[in-house]
Design a protein around this nucleic acid. Structure first.
Lengths: 137, 137, 137, 137
DNA sequence: GTGGTCTAGACCACA
DNA sequence: GTGGTCTAGACCACG
């Protein structure tokens, strides 16, 4: 799995890394039960400090995406976090804002819906093979 | 128009204000040509620092949403910023991340599409009356 | 409020600080809405690094005990975290262990119950004056 | 006796094992004079490192819960450690903290007392048969 | 002046 | 070797 960090971005590095890992899980690049590189390894790979990686891992753990196993380090959780109210709020807030700007910039609704479908489909497809086994509702 | 600021949010106040104003324009609460409250007034209304309001207004001006006029203060632009490459990138990036998390939390695609449609529809409807004047396709 | 850190303890400093603050809130020394010292101030007061204080504050925030207000720093939350399943599990686990050792050491049940009552009473009493206003279930 | 280890817990494995054994003694699953599985056996049974088991056994010996015999391995001590100053301090400290959080989460005192009584009763009951021999008041 | 971020280096507990 | 902790110092965004 390749992780790209934009050092010029205003999004903090640890947050970019966090998002990359979430996208990696969704796209099937990182499978449940799989180990992530150690903080030191990952830090070296992408050229950042190990504490920054550590921060990402810990946030992901507190969100339920990762487990930190005392023996094998960071592992992708097999029970993804559930559909929480907090996330729904965040999602609605983000979409309210994003779609406002989208609307004002004259992008058509159908284009947005298509974009969403394409992205979601990408995740849904890659995960379908392991869906029965690991995803439960 | 009512603006709500969450002082405990991780989103900076100036950015919250910026988003609120964009949502206000999209929803028709703020109409093209309409003046916003003065920096001082707005700061007092929502209980924040004057410089913070100033920052929001300036960003919105640089983005093309507002005109700053010496006499009438901040005025909603009648020519919205167009569909820019930069915005499209930002939009795609945000959606890639948001939909990844949405997918992992087992929220269905159709729910997302419905949410998007509802939000967009809200903007589209309210703006339709003034659409003839300011929006061109 | 006086905070005592035992630098020899095997409990991490940030955890000792976290517990002190929780006890401070329970005992009424720290009232809802009240601001805590800034991370720098607190760090200086108790002679530790500011990052260590920061860690405590952030954990307490994620647990719902504190809010980090962009203007005034760390503030005691007025809505305490609710009775969560996670905490109940932790509580039961701790008590199972503690009482096992207590039992083996021949400490009588009634002594334990008295100790618990005394401690709880201490918290309950000090908080009673502000109970009506800030605590809700 | 079944020992459950949570490899993702923040409590070290050796400490989890130590607590399990103490709970086992208190609940009567492990009787005074009884031998524990050998270090190798125990390590294999619960899938952990041999040194980790060793560490737990050694701590329990130093606390007076076990005797380590060259021939029969680890044996539950017939003379439990007595009510020590050190333990009392630890107990009071833990309860001060735990009850603070309990109080803030609006758990009632009577619920706590009941929980304590239930747990203690579980130990007291199961141990009563062998009480005459090993426990003195 | 506030907290947030990032880097750095050191030591330790754990397995 | 792993992550956890603590310290330190620097810069930045925010208000």
């Amino acid at each position: 799995m390749i992780i790209e960090i934009d050092f010029e971005s205003e999004i903090p590095i640890y947050e970019q890394l966090r998002r990359s890992i979430i996208e990696g899980i969704a796209s099937g690049d990182l499978k449940p039960g799989e180990s992530l590189p150690s903080v030191r390894q990952m830090a070296q790979d992408i050229g950042i400090n190990l504490h920054t990686v550590n921060k990402s891992y810990n946030i992901l753990r507190s969100e339920g995406y990762l487990n930190i196993d005392r023996r094998s380090g960071a592992v992708v959780n097999e029970n993804y976090p559930k559909d929480s109210e907090k996330f729904n709020k965040k999602l609605a807030g983000e979409l309210n804002y994003l779609l406002a700007e989208t609307y004002l910039r004259n992008i058509k609704l159908e284009d947005i819906l298509k974009l969403c479908s394409d992205i979601y489909g990408k995740y849904n497809l890659s995960g379908s093979e392991i869906k029965g086994k690991v995803r439960r509702r």
